[in-house]
Simulated assay, not measured.
Amino acid sequence: MGKVVLVTGVARQLGGRLVRRAQRDPGVERVIAVDAVEPGHHLGGAEFVRTDIRRPEIGRVLAEHRVDTVIHLDVTGTPLGAGGRTSVKETNVIGTMQLLGACQKSPTVSRLVIKSSTSVYGSAPRDPAVFTENTPPKSLPSGGFAKDAVEVEGYVRGFARRRPDVAVCVLRFANILGPCADSPLAQYFSLPVLPTVFGYDPRLQFVHEDDVMEVLGMALHEPRRGTLNSGTFNVAGEGVLLLSQCSRRLGRPTLPVLLPAVTWVGSALRTVGITDFSPEQFRLLTHGRVVSTAQTRETLGFVPKFTTAETFADFARSRGPGLLPPESLERAVDRMGQSLATGAGEALPVPKQRARRGRRDAGQGA
């Protein structure tokens, strides 16, 4: 008998892809797809159950289908359809609480995989150069999806203490990008002009949506013998990109904004559809964030196929050309930098001692 896998959040592209992938896994017998809304994409031969994880009915679904593996993907930063920030937060936090309560009562559930985010580390000026899974944040996120992720992980740790017999795997994904990416950061990079924080050029990491599928597929099963079967893992592509590099590769100009005006800009962006571009998102675009993936490689045996740069390149191709061709924008930035450097050099006064030495040398040469 194979696994009976329940996947939440299947109305989104990520959930739909995982449902289709899980059905091709020889170790999976059945897949139960759960969401509060009807998905607009095909789910293969999976059984779709329309239910809201914020309601107690999710416990009945676990019992009825004798589910042994739960993959919780319904933790997100963007609403689906006409829902707003309040609805998203309720699904993220209240929905997770209800799902964990149902899993705690279920005698058949033996494995739980949670989609989380590296945003739980926050972004602060005195952050370490690289976060590991055990590094405490300098400043906890105060709002938006990042705060939701922190609360979700807190409830998951409580569940793990109450049910030590269940293998719990928390996957902290860096910002997910790709042709089908749907996140506040993907929407930000799709703007014709990118607002940035004046004087800052943060380091960013990305993970490709295909690599997300791969590691979720691996997390379905117990890792190889001799390693941990549960824990928390950072998942990100190798390397980093500066925000300035991202803008040039997209061919989109930037609009530097003074730090005090950032809150106003965030409010303006929300009015045009970036619903959760919270202060936490702007902190990321100010201070950046880089995580170590050593534990993921060593314990799960997972190495992403796409680097951060390759992930961003694939995303950029899917969004089409920006206002300026990337090559032209890069040449313009380089020329401007050279002009500024040359102008600064010409404006520098020559020290008197050096000037006298120059005249003396000229006289000797004559």
Rank of each mutant, 00 (worst) to 15 (best):
V10K: 01
G15V: 06
G16T: 10
R17Y: 13
L18K: 04
R21N: 09
A22F: 15
A22G: 07
G27L: 15
G27N: 12
V28I: 12
E29N: 08
D35S: 06
L43N: 12
V49H: 03
V49T: 03
T51A: 14
D52M: 04
R54D: 01
P56N: 02
A63S: 14
H65D: 03
H65N: 04
T76A: 04
T78K: 02
G81E: 11
G84H: 08
E90W: 03
T91I: 09
A102W: 00
A102Y: 00
R111D: 07
L112H: 02
V113T: 14
S117V: 00
T118V: 15
S119Q: 14
S123G: 07
R126W: 07
D127F: 05
A129G: 06
T132R: 11
E133S: 02
K138E: 02
P141R: 01
G143M: 10
V150Y: 00
E151P: 00
R157C: 04
F159G: 00
R161V: 13
D165H: 01
A167Q: 11
V170T: 10
A174K: 05
G178C: 13
D182P: 02
P184A: 06
Y188H: 04
S190M: 14
L191T: 07
Y200R: 15
R203W: 12
Q205S: 02
Q205H: 10
M213H: 09
E222W: 09
L228W: 03
S230P: 01
F233K: 04
L241E: 05
L241C: 04
L241R: 06
S244C: 04
R249I: 03
P253N: 02
V257T: 15
P260V: 13
V262M: 08
T263R: 10
V265L: 12
L269G: 15
Q281E: 05
L285G: 08
G288C: 05
R289L: 11
V291D: 07
Q295R: 15
E298P: 01
G301M: 08
V303M: 14
V303R: 14
F306L: 02
A309N: 04
T311E: 01
A313Y: 09
A313N: 12
P321D: 05
L323W: 14
L324H: 01
E327I: 11
A332Q: 10
D334C: 08
R335I: 14
M336C: 14
G337N: 08
L340M: 14
T342W: 15
K352P: 09
K352A: 07
R356N: 05
R357H: 13
R357G: 10
Q364G: 14
A366V: 11
